[in-house]
Computed example of a mutant assay.
Amino acid sequence: MRLITLALAALLLLIQFPLWTGKGGWLRVADMEAQVAQAHQKNMELKARNAKLESEVRDLKDGTGAVEERARYELGMVKQNEIFVQIVRKGQLPPMTETPAATAAPH
């Protein structure tokens, strides 16, 4: 009787083995579900990024506010009759501004 019980237990384990580790096994399914969740997360991040870029493109096409903002912050441009004030904190280097002396070739 003990031999039959051991044989049936061994058969049960052999039947269970493909269920856990086989091509369509539970471990593989769990791994695939994790990959799908990760892909969904990446897609959501990319959709948010695309929406932000689309909004920025729309602003650049339709309005002048975005163009003015970029000109001010990226190029350092100011309007006519406007005074530019820059506050530099202790230990902070001022942004590099290109001057004619800096671009001149050394003699």
Rank of each mutant, 00 (worst) to 15 (best):
N43G: 02
Y73I: 06
R28E: 10
I83Q: 12
K90R: 06
V57D: 01
K47H: 11
K42V: 10
L19R: 15
N81M: 09
Q16R: 14
V29T: 05
R49T: 06
G65E: 13
V67K: 08
Y73S: 02
Q86V: 00
I83K: 13
L12G: 15
Y73W: 13
A71E: 09
F17M: 08
M77F: 15
G91D: 04
G91Y: 08
M77Q: 09
Q92S: 06
E68R: 15
K23V: 09
W20G: 00
Q41N: 06
Q16T: 09
L14T: 05
A34P: 03
W20K: 12
N43D: 09
T64I: 13
G76T: 01
K52I: 01
G63M: 01
E68T: 14
L14F: 14
G63P: 05
R72W: 14
Q92C: 01
A30V: 07
A51H: 03
F84I: 00
K47Q: 14
F84V: 02
L12R: 15
Q35F: 07
E33C: 09
G91A: 07
T21R: 10
I87Y: 11
D31S: 14
E56V: 04
D62R: 10
K42T: 07
K52M: 06
V85N: 02
D62F: 11
G22D: 11
V85Y: 08
S55W: 10
A9C: 01
L13Q: 06
P18K: 10
A39H: 14
N81F: 09
W20F: 15
E33L: 11
A71Y: 12
L53A: 06
L13F: 11
W26A: 05
N43W: 01
K52D: 03
G91S: 09
G25F: 07
A10Q: 05
L14E: 04
N43P: 00
T64Y: 15
V36C: 05
V78W: 11
R49W: 12
G63S: 13
D31C: 08
A30T: 09
R70V: 03
K52H: 04
A9E: 05
E33Q: 14
R58D: 03
E33W: 04
N81A: 10
K90Y: 10
Q38L: 11
A39Y: 05
L12C: 13
Q80L: 14
A9W: 02
A66N: 04
Q35T: 04
V78C: 07
E82Q: 12
K79P: 00
N81V: 02
E56M: 09
T64G: 13
R49H: 13
Q41P: 00
W20S: 07
A39V: 00
M44V: 03
A66I: 04
L13D: 00
Q80T: 07
V29N: 08
V78Q: 06
G91K: 05
R49F: 11
